[in-house]
């Protein structure tokens, strides 16, 4: 899948062409016969010929499950990792040969990180990072105080970093990412592990920042569908190192709109049956068991409404109770299922 639109008018904020990244695993591996002898280096592919282009001013999302290659791509884009092959330009500069130029124009915020030295206060930590971008003290501290106010951290400006809650720490980390007013901001799961309210504050800020800073670009990785749908101008779906689809949220959803999407809630379904094309007309199906309630949420993408009937009969035959059945408007979740072949939380599927 190539995520580069035709007819580029200006220098892209992010331009990746045929980017692959593999790691060599040299650990001793257990053979099938149980022996523990060296099996030789094994190549683990994290990114497989990824191409994408993000325009200045765009809020671009990378949506994929854990291990899809999102963070690997972000590391390459932010100059922390070299691609095994392919070329990457960020803010008009090559990330391999012109890393220094790239670094002046980017910043990155990762979710779930502990950034800063525990022994410093919030304000000191942010001041320290501002110095790495060469900001003069006065303007830097003024900007820091304004951001602390915006994020509701002003009262904690003089609190040591090791005393902050997870949400506060992430807000501080987020402010750090804005200190150099980056042309391209990489957000790697920025709301990971945050409560609803803090995640909301961060999402609102991203939108507002983009509005107030025309021409700034955000590349967001997430596995929260709603976050991607709410924020992103365009979304690339990535799985197992490959970009499988790239479009606006509406454009992606249109791919499923010619199909019928059903949500089924079933009880007493001990194990999901193997699909193996046993229900004609059903293109994708995902099973999400909820052990706490004993119920299974089933999402079905079918060619037409009638295709779901044999499935329901099959489920009843297996002793399952159908608690709820509804035909729904497709969401990004359904697009993901359609494109990838399994739900975001699943490891395998139909």
């Amino acid at each position: 899948m190539n995520a580069i639109p035709d007819g580029r008018a200006r220098e892209a904020a992010v331009l990746a062409q045929g980017v692959s990244r593999w790691f060599t695993d040299t650990r001793r591996q257990r053979h099938q016969d149980g022996s523990d002898a060296p099996a030789g280096p094994r190549r683990v592919v994290a990114l497989d010929r990824v191409s994408l282009e993000v325009q200045p001013g765009e809020l671009f999302g990378l949506l994929g499950p854990n291990g899809a290659g999102k963070s690997t791509l972000i590391k390459i884009l932010s100059t922390l990792l070299l691609p095994s092959e392919g070329t990457v330009r960020v803010a008009g500069y090559d990330v391999v040969r012109q890393a220094h130029q790239v670094r002046r124009r980017i910043n990155m915020v990762s979710g779930g990180e502990t950034v800063g030295y525990g022994i410093l206060t919030v304000r000191e930590t942010l001041w320290m990072f501002s110095q790495f971008y060469g900001l003069a003290n006065g303007p830097a501290l003024k900007m820091i105080d304004e951001y602390l106010e915006t994020f509701g951290l002003a009262d904690n400006a003089h609190t040591r970093v090791n005393k902050l809650s997870t949400g506060m720490r992430q807000k501080m980390n987020f402010i750090r990412g804005l200190l150099n007013d980056p042309d391209v901001l990489f957000l790697d799961e920025p709301t990971l592990g945050l409560d609803v309210q803090t995640a909301r504050i961060i999402r609102d800020f991203i939108r507002d920042w983009m509005r107030r800073r025309p021409g700034r670009t955000v590349l967001l990785t997430t596995h929260y569908m709603a976050e991607a749908e709410e924020l992103c101008d365009r979304i690339a779906i990535i799985d197992r190192g490959r970009i499988l689809a790239c479009d606006t949220p509406d454009g992606l959803k249109r791919r499923v709109q010619s199909h019928s999407v059903f949500r089924i809630e079933a009880a007493r379904l001990d194990a999901p049956p193997e699909a193996d094309g046993r229900w004609p007309g059903i293109e994708r199906i995902s099973w999400e068991p909820h052990p706490a309630t004993g119920r299974t949420r089933i999402t079905v993408i079918a060619a037409d409404d009638a295709a779901v009937t044999p499935l329901l009969a099959d489920l009843r035959e297996r002793g399952a109770d159908i608690i709820h059945l509804s035909k729904v408007e497709p969401t990004l979740e359904d697009v993901f299922l359609q494109v990838v072949g399994r739900g975001l939380g699943e490891h395998s599927g139909a």
Partner: peptide, 13 residues
């Protein structure tokens, strides 16, 4: 280990 190195290394110093 603390994740600080990558933050330092994306800065232009």
């Amino acid at each position: 280990q603390s994740g600080q190195l990558e933050i330092f290394f994306i800065t232009p110093v």
